[in-house]
Amino acid sequence: MNEKQCENVLDYLNEQLTEKEREEFEQHLRECPDCQAEVQELENLMGGIPAYMKEATPPAGMRERVLNDVFKDEENEHKNETEEKQAPVLSPKKPNKWKVWAGALAAGLLLSVGGNIFAGLQLQQLSSQNEDLESNLSDLQVALSKLEDRESENGDTMTPTERTQLASTGEAGSGVATLVDRNIGSELLVQVEELTQLEGDQVYQVWLIEGENPEPAGAFTTDGEGNGAVTFRIDEENQKSWDAIAITKEPKPNNQLPEGEVVLQAEL
């Protein structure tokens, strides 16, 4: 057993052990003078190397980028991938496609009203049959948020895979949508400005569209100047080849299909 542990020195130094293996090895390390000496020797040998490396000149602006990201990270905001103010005056490439889409949406909406009533009935039955449903759900949510916490601690790097300007359909407003790959799935970041003011329960709703099927991808409200932003996580299993993104003004939050008019849009 111990001899086996002694074979982990290299993988320990290269952080190739799982958390459990590492803990076991560290435990072993405290008791094994041979391994202590070996780790120390290798660390010393490795530690001397950087001093002989050639100097490289940091790219311009790196300091600001790194430090900004560090401090932003603290606020737990990953909006930094989106761009600062730009005023895109891009018109959609194929406006006709949008008319078709809007038609399909209207049809889909009618279907969904019927569907929702049916689903609602089923849900009632389900919940009366299963009183644990809610507590199960909250357990799941706790587990999920723990997972998310752990994930955010990993400090994974993000690379924007797709970035697109959102064009206004007539009213004021502009925005940027960025798709960012994460370790698990990807994340959609949307940032808008100069949208018209919302009233009452209204929200701006983001939709990702595959073919003719829109899926809700986060909602937001705007500040006094019409600025807003939202991030939306796309799980690996929900990963699709999205054709377009749209933002509509919805009369109420949590619509599963769009009712309101499209205010910003872009093809992906």
């Binding site: 940091p58 601690e153 400090g155 790097t157």
Partner: peptide
């Protein structure tokens, strides 16, 4: 990629965990 590494290092340092 080197800049990404820098970011990672300083974020870890700032978080001060693990």
């Amino acid at each position: 990629a080197a800049e990404e590494v820098m970011q990672d290092v300083f974020i870890k340092l700032w978080r001060g965990k693990g």
